[in-house]
Design a protein around this nucleic acid. Structure first.
Lengths: 405, 405
DNA sequence: GAAACTTCTTAAATAATTAAAGAAGTTAAT
DNA sequence: ATTAACTTCTTTAATTATTTAAGAAGTTTC
C-alpha cells in the first residue's frame, strides 16, 4: 500500500472517530477523494477488520446510504489531563468511553524537576494495568498548563527537561507510542469543537474556568494557537486598576478578580469573617474539595456561595465583552472545572455584556455551559491524538494493520 | 473553455496580480494544479494577450525558471476608500499604480440618506473621466466604516438602502461592474497582508489609527472577519474606568482615550489653555488639516504635539497588550491615517507592553509602522476585488477575454 | 398508487496527477 | 580551471483519479 493511500485510509479512520457513523458519500467529501477511491479504501478497511458496516442511515429523500463505523476494541488511546496540582490519566477507546478507571495523582508542577519522570512512569503503569496489548494503542495525548509549543513538544513553563528538549520525544522514546501535547485550555476547546457544544461551529470562544481563566479559540472552524502557540492568555490581560498583585508579577490581571482559586479564597475569607453559609464546614486547604463544595452549595441555593460566583461571573463577563468586540464569535462556552456550577454563570455574564458590549455585537452571540465539564480536557487530549492520526507512521505491529495489502 | 478551467485561469491572473513575477512552478503550487496543466493555461493566457513572459528568475541552485507577469494596460480596477467624512476614489491598474487623480469628496456618512447615490454617481464620473473603456474594468472595491456584512453587501451603520438591500447589488446594477465592499480596517489589513509589512506573515494585527481605532486581524494567514463579519471592534472594548461617554453610548471605550479625533481635541484644548506650540495656528474646525498639521509638528519635534501623541500611544499600547495576550501575533502594524506620525508611536507603545504584558509573550512580537500609510485602504479595496477574482463571472465583452478558446 | 424527484451505487470516459527522462544551471572538488 | 555531482525546471509518457452518465433504491407528492 502506497503512502498516499495510507494517508487517505488514516483520514477515514480519523473521520469515523470524530463522527461515529458515516456513509461512503460523507467520507468521500470529508477526505476529499472521489467516491470510487473512497469505496475501495473502505472495502479494504473492512477486510482488515478495522471498520464495520452499521446498517443504513435515514434517507434524505433518496436511497438510504450504508453507514460505516470503527470496529470496537481494536484501537485505544491514553488521555492525560494535567493542572497545576492534579493529573488525571485514563485509557479511552474510539467511542470516547473511559475503559480504565481515571487514575488521579497529586503532581504539583511548579518547581518540580521530577514531574516528567513521574508522569511517564504513571502512564506506563496505566497502560499495563489496563491489560490491553500495547500494539492496540494509537498514541498518547497530554493536556497541560503553561506555554506549550505543540510542534516542538516543549512546555516553557513546567516539566523542564534541560536544553529545551522535547517532552513528546522523551515520553515517546520511553514508551514506544506517539505522543502529543497541548495547552489545557486549547484541549478543552478542541473537545468542545469535536464532541461538545461547538461541534460544527466556526467561531467559538471556550472559556476554561479553573484555577485560572483559560481561553481556547476556535476561529474559522479550527483551533487557533497563534504565532508561537501561546494564544488564549485570557487570565493575564491587563484589565483592572485594582493594584492586586498577580502570580505573573503584574497587577490588575483578569484572574485577580475571577477564577476558582479566587472563589475559594473569598469563601475562606467570608467564613472567617463569620458569614453564615453551608461553606463553613469546608476543608479550605484542599482546593479541589473546597471548590467542588462551593459549587455544590451554589446548586443548592446557598446565598453566600451564589454571591461569590455572581461577582466572579460578572468579571468574566467583562472579559467576554472584550472577546466579543475583538472576535465577533457566534458562541461562548463556559467549560472546565468551573462549569459544574452550571447556569449560575449566565445572569452575571449577561449583565456584564449588557453594560459593556455594543448591542449589535452581542445580540447574536450565545453563551452556553459545557456538558463535557470536567472531562473536557481528557476528551480533548484523545482528540488531539486523532487530529494528528493521518500523520502517525503506521504501527507495523498492530494485529489488524499488518494485514493491509 | 470549461468552468473549471476558467476558475484556474482566473486564479493565475489573481496570483500574478498579488505577486508581480511568478514562474510556472510557483503558479502550479499556488493554484494547486499540476505543472502540465498550469503550463497549458499560461500558454493560453499569453495567446490571448493577458500575460507576458518577463525573462528569467534568479536560480535557486538549478536551471533558471521563466517568469510571467500580467500584461500592462489591459485590466483596471476602481478603488474607493471612505471614512466618516471624506471619500476617495481612484482608478488603479494591475501593477498597483494610481492611473487617475485621486478624487476626494466630502461625504459625511452619519444620517446621510443620499450618500449612496452620490457615491455611485461619483464612481461613474471617475470611470468616465479616466478615458478607459468600461470593458477593461475588472470591478469596484469599496472600503467603508461601520458594521459591514461582506457576503450580503450590507452596511448596518451607514449608507442605508431600505429593507436591508445590498449596496453591492445596487451599485453593480447601476454601473454594470462587480462590486465588493468591506470594513475600512479590514481592507487596511488586507493591503498590509498582500502588499505591505504583513506580506507572507500568518498572524498579524493591523491597528488602523484614524478618527477611531480600528483593527484588522490576520490569523492563520487570512483576513479574519468573525461570525457576522464584525470582528475587530477595537475602538469600543470596555477598557477604562474614566466615565467618559463614547459615541457608541457606553463609557470607558478605548477610543475615549486614544484616536486622532481625541488628539485633535486635546490639541485644541491645550492651545485654548495657552500652551506654547506650533499648533496654535491650526484650523481646528477642519479635522483633516488639523490632524495632518499635528502629525507634521510631531515630526518637527514640537513638544506639545509629541506629548499628546505619547499619551495616545501609551493607551493604544495597553490595548495592544490585550491583543498580544489573546492572539499571540508575530507582528503588530500601525497603519491608516495616524501612521503618518511615524516612529513616535514606538516608544510609548513599547512602554505599555513592558508594563502590561508577560515578557515571554511580547518579546517575539514586533511593532512596525506601515509604509502604505494613508493609501492602505485604497490598495486594500483593489486587493478585495482581486481576492474574489476567480469567482467573478467572465466579462464577455473584454477585448482580450472573448478570444479565449 | 403512480409519477416525479432524490440520493446512492456502479461502470465507462475523461482529465488529472505522477513519474521518469531530458535540459539547463550551480556548486564543490580535483 | 575543469569536471563531476547535484539542483531545479521543462517536457513527455504512464498511471491514477475524477467526472459523467446510467442504473438501482427509496421518498414524497399529486
Amino acid at each position: 500500500m502506497t503512502d498516499k493511500k495510507t494517508f487517505s485510509r488514516n483520514k477515514i479512520l480519523k473521520e469515523l472517530y470524530f463522527e461515529e457513523n458515516l456513509s461512503c458519500a460523507d467520507l468521500s467529501i470529508k477526505i476529499d477523494k472521489s467516491f470510487p477511491v473512497t469505496a475501495k479504501l473502505i472495502e479494504n478497511l473492512i477486510a482488515v477488520n478495522l471498520v464495520i458496516e452499521t446498517g443504513f442511515a435515514v434517507s434524505t429523500g433518496g436511497r438510504r446510504p450504508l453507514t460505516y463505523a470503527l470496529k470496537q476494541n481494536v484501537m485505544y488511546l491514553v488521555s492525560v489531563a494535567m493542572d497545576q496540582f492534579v493529573t488525571r490519566i485514563v485509557v479511552m477507546d474510539m467511542q470516547n468511553n473511559f475503559v480504565s478507571p481515571i487514575e488521579k495523582i497529586v503532581l504539583p508542577l511548579p518547581d518540580n524537576a521530577g514531574a516528567l519522570e513521574i508522569l511517564k512512569d504513571k502512564i506506563i503503569q496505566v497502560i499495563y494495568s489496563s491489560g490491553i496489548p500495547k500494539e492496540k494503542f494509537v498514541g498518547i495525548g497530554i493536556g497541560m498548563p503553561g506555554f506549550v509549543d505543540v510542534e516542538k513538544g516543549i512546555n516553557y513553563s513546567f516539566l523542564p527537561l534541560g536544553n529545551n528538549k522535547s517532552i513528546t520525544k522523551y515520553i515517546a522514546d520511553k514508551i514506544g507510542l506517539p505522543v502529543f501535547i497541548d495547552n489545557d485550555s486549547s484541549l478543552t476547546a478542541l473537545a468542545e469543537l469535536r464532541f461538545g457544544a461547538a461541534k460544527n461551529e466556526k467561531d467559538v470562544m471556550v472559556v476554561n474556568i479553573g484555577w485560572g481563566v483559560g481561553l481556547g479559540l476556535i476561529l474559522n472552524g479550527v483551533l487557533f494557537r497563534g504565532h508561537e502557540g501561546f494564544a488564549g492568555e485570557f487570565s493575564h490581560i491587563p484589565f483592572f486598576l485594582n493594584g492586586k498583585l498577580c502570580s505573573c508579577g503584574k497587577t490588575g490581571c483578569l484572574e485577580t478578580e475571577t477564577s476558582l482559586l479566587l472563589i475559594v479564597e473569598k469563601a475562606k475569607e467570608g467564613i472567617a469573617e463569620g458569614r453564615l453559609s453551608k461553606l463553613s464546614s469546608l476543608p479550605f486547604d484542599n482546593l479541589e474539595v473546597a471548590s467542588d463544595g462551593i459549587m455544590k452549595a451554589v446548586l443548592e441555593g446557598d446565598q453566600f456561595a451564589i454571591e461569590i460566583f455572581s461577582k466572579a461571573g460578572y468579571n468574566i463577563g467583562k472579559g467576554v465583552a472584550v472577546l466579543i468586540h475583538l472576535l465577533n464569535p457566534k458562541l461562548i462556552i463556559l467549560s472546565g472545572r468551573g462549569s459544574s456550577a452550571g447556569q449560575i454563570w449566565q445572569a452575571p455574564i449577561q449583565q456584564a455584556l449588557n453594560e459593556h458590549c455594543i448591542p449589535r455585537l452581542y445580540q447574536n452571540t450565545k453563551i452556553e455551559i459545557s456538558t463535557l465539564g470536567i472531562h473536557a480536557e481528557l476528551i480533548g487530549a484523545a482528540a488531539l491524538v486523532m487530529e494528528n492520526y493521518e500523520r502517525i507512521p503506521v504501527n507495523k505491529s498492530h494485529p489488524a494493520l499488518h494485514e493491509m495489502s
